[in-house]
Amino acid sequence: MSAPVIQGWCPGALRPMASGDGLVVRVRPRGGRLEPAQAAGIAALSRAHGNGVIDLSARANVQLRGVTEASHGPLLEGLRALGLLDESIAAETRRNIVVTPFWDAGDGTQALAQALAKALAPDAPALPGKFGFAVDTGATPVLRGTAADIRLECSAEGRLLVRADGASTGANVTPETAAETALHLARWFVESGGISESRGRMAAHLARGAVLPGVFREAEALPPGELPQFAPGTVPQGQLVGFAFGQMQAETLAALAGLWPLRVTPWRMLLIEGLRGTPALPGLITDAHDPLLRVIACTGAPGCPQALQPTRPLARALAAHVPSGQMLHVSGCAKACAHPGQGPVTLLAEAGGFRHGATGPALSAKALLERPQTLFEAP
């Protein structure tokens, strides 16, 4: 069995990625926020130029599926009219920024994100395709479980900090110097061999022994702590709503666009800005205890050409059997795109079914459904 192909880059709008159901076009909302007209426009473009299926990615982006070579051009024109298109593939790739959704007007978060995006446009070095930035400047960081290589956070003393992912210290900065300091760290990563030695990720580069410049060792970051978990419900900034596997129909996004501005989260949820109460719309997960929140699954076959089995029908069927407080990850191939790294119980697709554990046999979906409780029994 051949190994899955690792692309090493993420799709964009200008540089889409081919999948089993057409081109995947990723839209990167500026500051992680969509005005109602932008959200409504994306929904309309998805229906007109794609298959009407919209994904939320783990980097707080919006993906349109089912786009064809012929419809890609008109789609780009529509995104440009909405102010959602970068001037070039290089600029789009560099603007890989995830922003905490829990910001308040005037707290400086959006200004920091805008300054970083502006600085990245002309001056960033040639960074790897997945290299990213996180603006996570609340009193408690919430994006440490989200992939990023350079993080803007608050230090243990409550000051603004620029930190390399994988480091416990960073550089004290001001809102005026944060963006340039982040670029200085990105340049050091490139100049110190980070691209060639660590598959392009900051934490791996540091783990191999790279020593940060002194300025990035001057202030202590907040300690790691337990990663926060978020679920649908009311938060100070509005209402969080979820979607099964982070996927919705264009009609759902169009209906949400008629409510308030939307903030896209890296937890495959949307935050409806300023809303209090649960919107009565089909396709939303609004119950924090919904079993579908305990399963993670990639697109699977046939939507992904590298997937060896369908994933989401099995994940949906097993959801009710996942104990509260646990997670099940059903992956269509060894890349485990939907949840990289260790964590939940994982079923890995193979040609003969799904494997649970390194040495066990591959089991069919039917066999797994007959005894789902064995997945969560201690070995």
Rank of each mutant, 00 (worst) to 15 (best):
S168C: 11
S155I: 04
Q110H: 09
C154D: 10
L160P: 00
A139W: 04
L85C: 08
T177E: 02
F102P: 09
A171R: 08
A105G: 00
A182L: 04
L152A: 04
S168T: 14
L85P: 11
T169H: 11
F131R: 10
I89W: 10
G170F: 03
V162I: 08
E157S: 15
N172R: 15
F102W: 08
T137Y: 02
A111L: 01
L116P: 03
V173L: 08
A156Y: 15
D149G: 09
V98T: 12
A121S: 14
A113S: 03
R151Q: 13
L79A: 04
D86M: 05
R95V: 05
E92H: 13
A134R: 07
A182P: 06
G166T: 07
A121R: 14
L185D: 01
W103L: 10
P141H: 11
V98G: 05
E176L: 08
A124V: 01
G158A: 07
L127I: 08
G108I: 01
A121N: 15
N96Q: 08
A121D: 15
P101W: 00
K118S: 14
G129F: 01
I89L: 13
V99L: 02
D123Q: 14
W103T: 02
A124H: 10
G158I: 07
A91L: 03
P122G: 12
A113L: 02
G138C: 10
A171G: 01
A90N: 12
A171V: 08
A121Q: 15
G129D: 02
A121F: 09
T100S: 15
P141F: 06
A105D: 13
L112I: 00
A134L: 14
E157R: 14
A167G: 11
G129T: 05
T137C: 04
E180K: 06
T100G: 09
K118L: 13
V162P: 04
D165T: 15
P141T: 11
V135H: 06
S168F: 07
A126W: 12
K130T: 09
G108A: 04
V162L: 08
G170S: 01
Q110P: 00
F102Y: 13
L160D: 06
L183I: 12
F131C: 10
L116A: 06
A186T: 07
